[in-house]
Nucleic acid binder design. Structure first.
Length: 541
RNA sequence: GCGGGUGUAGUUCAAUGGUAGAACAUCAGCUUCCCAAGCUGAAUACGAGGGUUCGAUUCCCUUCACCCGCUCCA
């Protein structure tokens, strides 16, 4: 049975993850990677970078891909021009005013609670509800009747206003009957919840110099779209990948590192012709899922969840989440590792013309969202971000497929998946519980450990020699302390896939044993061949 | 942000209004020729701040963090 407590305790004990600033009591939502954790996370990011970007062969048609395509990388800053976040939509979206209900203890977005004025015998109250527009009138009537303790036959004595209003349009919330309340005036003053970390440019900066730490890496790619086009000779279809830190001031960080306030993303923005975008969407969705299974996430713990049509942004043909059955979630529930979103031309056009209106009805062309003065609410850059196909001479704004993965969530999922308790006999033949981190060899923080079987007879000297050689090629650990069985177990907990042991025979015939973490099998290999043997096994698996 | 629970060594747990104990892990030494063996020794803890008290790890308050439920979740 995998329990989160055991995984968290092992992560701390063995140096995978620590709470940030722990000696001062910790800070909610921030986590540090220890000596083993940093290697694991680096390996995951490098596997991603290699498999998606650096190792991509644009000359070869990839399995399942509609055509050949190119991939390049990018590394943008965390702080960008404030206008970036206004045009991206994050400023409006992450800048919520929230109200709390003192009675029901629920919290609502100030601009989302709506309702109508209701009057009965000179008493006027505002009945608020979260019901759908169609059911709103009925819901307001029902709750209004209940509030005034009216029977059905008196229904017509209740006067209901014609206009549906959101509560941010009211002068005060004094007369509001909150959606889950039975008494009036239970809502607090609206409070600002800024999900973006605010900071100030310049030492003397005032409010005008306020900007934000990026809440996602994607926007850096969009605003550099033209730079990449002009400098790298890439042609549509192509993708730009980036790995980097992002920041969100989550209200409730929870579940170990799953919802952290500082986290690392591995994102691709893939640009393609609008006519081919749904094919590319399917390609990336399937390819990204396969990537996780290949690195060892069990397919029965992993699901692809396609968003329902109602959940989709109006511009999107599809969005799918790759989700993992984390042990801290209830049975049957999954947590998001990666989202693959079809984003249409929303981002490039917003940075070009000004933020588009996300509430445009489906099927209509999106137009720039206007402010109260009739001018664009957030002005775009005015730069031309269209693409011209040199062969057909066609000009278009590419559509975007965005596979956006969380590196820390990936690490957490692989840690959870790897955590295994099995039974192995000790030297007396009694079964003992063995904790093994069955990490994929590519991800394992330490690839090999070298031991002299005993600390005498020249074995340590030979072992140290081998260690020095292996360490040049991959992360290797040397240990000569205590019984060899104990050393094996220590490496099992760290997830080290291979242990190399120097014994008496090694001194004669220049061979050593290699022991496999998962099968416990051992075989002999010439000392000169050890490095190649292990490299092969890391890469072929 | 609300309600409930929990904070003691690296980890998992004890005990106590008056010197805080164990197991495992760690370190040193001996032993040890393949899966947490044994022996000897060592180091290490009451989340933080305040109050009550002669004296607080223990009681009270505040705060921080973690867990569970609600809420939130681009």
């Amino acid at each position: 049975m995998k329990s989160m407590e055991k995984i968290v305790s092992l992560a701390k004990r063995r140096g995978f993850l620590f709470q940030s600033s722990e000696i001062y009591g910790g800070v909610q939502g921030f986590w540090d990677y220890g000596p083993l954790g940093v290697e694991l996370k680096r390996n995951l990011k490098e596997a991603w970078w290699h498999d998606m970007i650096a190792g991509h062969n644009e000359l070869k048609l990839q399995e399942g891909a509609p055509s050949q395509f190119e991939m390049v990388g990018l590394d943008c800053t965390i702080i960008m021009h404030p206008q970036v976040w206004k045009c991206s939509g994050h400023y409006d979206l992450f800048h919520d005013h929230m109200v709390d209900c003192r009675e029901s203890k629920k919290r609502y977005r100030f601009d989302q609670v709506r309702g109508r004025w209701v009057e009965y015998q000179d008493k006027k109250i505002f009945v608020a509800t979260l019901a759908d527009i169609e059911q709103e009138l009925e819901e307001v009537r029902r709750r209004g009747m209940k509030f005034f303790k009216l029977r059905n036959k008196d229904a017509d004595k209740l006067a209901i206003g014609d206009e549906s209003l959101t509560i941010d349009r009211l002068d005060s919330t004094q007369s509001v009957l909150a959606p889950d309340a039975k008494t009036l005036d239970t809502l607090t003053e609206p409070r600002e919840f800024n999900l973006m970390f605010k900071t100030t440019l310049g030492a003397l900066g005032g409010e005008d110099d306020a900007t934000f730490l990026r809440p996602e890496t994607a926007q850096g790619i969009f605003v550099n779209f033209k730079n990449v086009l002009d400098s790298s000779r890439v042609k549509v279809p192509f993708g730009i990948g980036q790995v980097g830190k992002s920041f969100r001031n989550e209200i409730t960080p929870r579940n170990f590192t799953f919802r952290s306030r500082e986290f690392e993303q591995m994102e691709i923005e893939f640009f393609c012709h609008p006519d081919h975008s749904s094919q590319w969407y399917r390609y990336w969705r399937d390819r990204r899922l396969a990537w996780y299974t290949k690195l060892g996430l069990a397919s029965d713990s992993l699901i692809m969840r396609e968003h329902h049509v109602e959940e989709l942004a109006h511009y999107s043909i599809g969005t799918a989440d790759i989700e993992y059955a984390f042990p801290f979630l209830p049975e049957g529930e999954y947590g998001e590792l990666e989202g693959i979103a079809h984003r249409g031309d929303f981002d490039l056009r917003s940075h070009m013309e000004g933020k588009l209106d996300p509430n445009t009805p489906k099927g209509q062309r999106m137009e720039v969202e206007l402010g109260e003065n009739g001018k664009p609410k957030h002005r775009g850059s005015g730069k031309d971000l269209t693409y011209r196909d040199e062969l057909t001479n066609e000009k278009f704004v590419p559509h975007v497929i965005e596979p956006s993965a969380g590196a820390d969530r990936g690490v957490l999922a692989f840690l959870c998946e790897a955590f295994t308790e099995d039974e192995a006999p000790d030297d007396k033949g009694n079964l003992q519980t063995r904790t093994v981190m069955k990490l994929h060899p590519r991800l394992a923080p330490v690839k090999a450990a070298v031991f002299p079987l005993v600390k005498k007879d020249g074995m340590p000297e030979v072992a140290k020699e081998i260690y020095g050689e292996l360490k040049q090629k991959f992360t290797t650990f040397y240990d000569e302390k205590g019984a060899v069985g104990r050393r094996y177990r220590r490496q099992d907990e760290a997830g080290t896939p291979f242990c190399i042991t120097v014994d008496t025979d090694s001194l004669q015939d220049k061979t050593v044993t290699i022991r496999d973490r998962d099968t416990l099998e051992q075989w002999r290999v010439k000392i000169d061949d050890v490095a190649d043997e292990i490299s092969d096994r890391i890469n072929q698996s």
